[in-house]
Amino acid sequence: MHELGITQTIVAIAVDHAGGARVRRIALEIGQLSAVMPEAIRFCFDVCAQGTVVEGATLEILEPSGLGQCRQCGQRLALSQPFGVCPCGSTQVDIIQGQELNLKEMEID
């Protein structure tokens, strides 16, 4: 359950940047191949935010889909797991999208 620690980090970063103002909204980017479950983050968020300026903030989570690029032929392919097989037969697929784990932005009063 690494999501609890990650949610604590989210709240800590937000509190740090809010400068005492109330946080209205936080936008996260959690890639679909990042091994982090957005539902678990949502579950932890209210608890972690309690008693801080983040309490009551809207949590937006953008989930970029997985995208790979074949090292052999350069073709791009959609990935639903952090690995894949290119139509050319190669398993040498680099993940170029879907592993994001960012606090993108927030809105304060």
Partner: peptide, 18 residues
């Protein structure tokens, strides 16, 4: 949406959570 509420201050952070 929060209609009628004044626009808040917007901070672009782009901070990796790890």
């Amino acid at each position: 949406h929060r209609p009628g509420q004044p626009q808040g201050t917007h901070l672009s952070l782009e901070q990796n959570l790890l």
